[in-house]
């Protein structure tokens, strides 16, 4: 059964592959971090930037009227909205880095960015995947 013999180079290659897999998982599958800042976009243009550490409620006026946003305990949500379907309100809270809330009828989008735990990390605040 000389064909079935595993050679030193095989062990080397398989070892490298397994190490590579672990490294890939470690690099790409980090859990989502708590976001630090909220950027409010109106018609795709940033109009307001607030830290998620201050609990507050505020209004953002879009084409349909005023949407009320609530920030509490590092999370943000649409509290009231003048839109018809209330999708934004029913979406509920968002708190993780890279998450996005939007009210399309009122042209408002909320983008969460930054890492509340480590703000020096490379590429912080970048969105790497959005999923609904």
């Amino acid at each position: 059964m000389r064909w079935l013999a595993v050679k030193p180079m095989d062990l080397l290659l398989w070892g490298a592959a397994l190490a590579g897999l672990l490294a890939l998982y470690a690099c790409l599958w980090r859990p989502a971090a708590q976001a630090a800042t909220l950027t409010v976009l109106l018609d795709n243009k940033p109009v307001k930037e607030v830290g998620l550490n201050q609990n507050q409620r505020f209004l953002v006026s879009g084409p349909l009227g005023d949407s009320e946003l609530q920030i509490e305990g590092g999370k943000v949500r649409f509290l009231h909205s003048p839109c018809r379907n209330q999708v934004c309100v029913h979406h509920g809270w968002a708190s993780h880095n890279g998450e996005l809330l939007a009210c399309l009828p009122n042209r408002i989008a909320l983008v969460l960015s930054g890492d509340a735990e480590s703000t020096h990390e490379a590429g912080h605040g970048e969105i790497d995947a959005i999923n609904f």
Binding site: W3, A5, V6, K7, P8, M9, D10, W14
Partner: peptide, 21 residues
């Protein structure tokens, strides 16, 4: 570079891994 039947060449297991990756 490494051949298929030399002492330092991978066996089919090694080649299968390389091809798959």
């Amino acid at each position: 570079v490494l051949g298929t039947r030399r002492p330092w060449s991978p066996s089919v297991y090694g080649y299968a891994l390389l091809a798959a990756w």
